[in-house]
Amino acid sequence: MASITFSQVTKRFPGADRPAVDTVSFTVPADEICMLLGTSGSGKTTLLRMVNRLGDPTSGQVLIDGVPTTEQDPIHLRRGIGYVIQQVGLFPHLTVEDNVRLVPSITGEPAAKSRPRVEALLRLVGLPPAEYRRRYPSQLSGGQAQRVGLARALAADPAILLMDEPFGSLDAITRGRMQQELLRMQQELHKTILFVTHDVDEALTLGDRIAVLAEGRLVQVGTPVELLATPANAFVRRLMGADSIVRQFEYLPVTLALDAAGVRPHAAESITADTTLLEALLRLIQSEQPALVVEEAGRPIGHVTLGSISRSVRRHRSGVQA
């Protein structure tokens, strides 16, 4: 349980003509995954590194649970914040096990005490301890190394996890699998995760919330649906690919396409309210029915038809362009 608040945060590097991060303010609520999305050089990494004080703001404040980070000892602060980066940065001279128990070991915890926890973490990230514990980083694939990196970041059971393009150098299939596993783990772990990416699909897949950065400024922050449905400006619309029917179908929920006529009792099949438009469409086609009932918590809240889906997408596109 920990929220992160950026309050008027600005970071200026010496010699740069514009700030790397420019008066950014927003809050990441506890236990949420917040994606920092933007093109290369937009200030995502700089913003992330201010949370664990690898860099301090030139002005403004980062607050964790309301306490400014600059009032906390950086060493102590960092031991309570997990850090995962694209380059992984495993210690090549330590075994997988010793890499994972690094934070406990620097605080002086004996190996025997952290052993069960290390094994549980390796299992959590999908690496059977018996097989991987004694390996060195050079004996791991890219995906396995990043799993170890994640286990290491979780070792001290931090409330906050900072992830800087952690899956950026993995192949598409491995990346997709890791994204799904992160979501699975988050259901157990309930960490506050700040996750940097330049990949819109990754942001839409993982984010409870997405903060869009451009040239150091916060352009928009909102849920994936909000960003797709009501992009703040042309930049966000283009970045999100909000005009793309495919993307809308993939990420927008079926509740945006309910038929105005209310519940039709004779529709035989039902779907849940969090179903995407794409899934709803496929189900409609497969079922060969004119309509599907949409249920929320087991209660029907409306229905969708091919017509209502197509109208919603058209309405949505014209709304965006208006």
Partner: peptide, 14 residues
């Protein structure tokens, strides 16, 4: 590898 050093600091090493 400078990233290894960075991670060291990021994890709270003195």
């Amino acid at each position: 590898d400078p990233w290894v050093v960075e991670v060291g600091y990021a994890m709270g090493m003195t």
